[in-house]
Computed example of a mutant assay.
Amino acid sequence: MRKLAASLSLLGLSYLGGCVTMGGGSSTLLVNTDPQGALVTIEGVGECETPCSVRLDGPKPARIAKAGFVAKTFVLSPSGREVTIPLELAAASEDVDTTALPDLD
């Protein structure tokens, strides 16, 4: 845990019990996704896995991505205290071989 905290500190990030606080802005925004565990990449700030807290000094372009879900791009604003982004399941592709899936009992 100490090594993680030291590494994050060198990157300008701080570890807060499952959340990462990024940047040196004036307002903290809690970013959630439904489902949790998505990667949030904020332009000019860094990235974290939801749920996470980010410090913003102004609106920032962000990208949310999670395997099996459609990636989203939008602007995070420090005007709120919390935001929850619903993720949409990606459509099945023809590349999936359904005959190779195991039978469920």
Rank of each mutant, 00 (worst) to 15 (best):
E88A: 11
L10Q: 15
L56F: 09
E49D: 10
G23L: 02
L16N: 11
T84R: 11
L10E: 15
E94V: 10
E82S: 12
M22I: 13
A62Q: 01
A65Y: 12
M22Y: 07
T99E: 11
L16R: 15
G25F: 00
A5W: 06
G17V: 07
F69V: 04
A5P: 04
C48N: 03
L8D: 02
F69I: 06
I64P: 01
C19H: 14
L16A: 14
L8G: 02
T21G: 08
S27G: 08
D57W: 07
G58N: 05
N32Q: 10
N32W: 03
A100L: 14
S26C: 13
G17K: 13
I42T: 01
G80H: 09
G80T: 13
P78G: 04
D95R: 14
V96E: 13
C48K: 01
F69L: 04
T84F: 03
A71E: 03
S9D: 15
A91R: 15
E82K: 10
V20S: 03
G24Q: 09
E49C: 07
E49S: 10
D103M: 08
L30G: 10
D105P: 07
T50K: 04
T28Q: 12
L30C: 09
R81M: 11
G58L: 03
V54I: 13
E82Q: 12
G23E: 05
S9Y: 13
Y15L: 11
G23C: 09
G37D: 12
P86R: 00
V20T: 10
P35M: 01
T99A: 08
E47K: 14
G24C: 06
V31T: 05
T98W: 12
A65W: 03
S79N: 13
T84D: 05
T73L: 01
L101F: 13
Q36F: 07
P51H: 02
A67W: 14
K3P: 05
R2W: 10
A90P: 06
G17P: 06
C48E: 02
P35L: 01
R55N: 12
P59M: 01
S7W: 12
M1G: 12
R55F: 04
I85Q: 11
L76W: 03
V83M: 14
Y15V: 04
G46A: 05
L76E: 03
D103L: 11
I42H: 00
R2Q: 14
K72Y: 05
V40C: 02
A71F: 00
D105T: 05
P78E: 02
G12M: 05
G12E: 06
D95P: 04
Y15R: 06
A71P: 06
T28S: 15
S77Y: 00
T99N: 07
M1P: 08
T33S: 12
D103V: 09
G23A: 06
D97P: 04
C52F: 00
M1N: 14
E82C: 05
P102D: 00
G68F: 06
N32S: 06
S79Y: 13
T41V: 12
K3D: 14
Y15C: 05
V70I: 14
L30R: 11
V40D: 00
F74L: 15
P61N: 09
R55I: 02
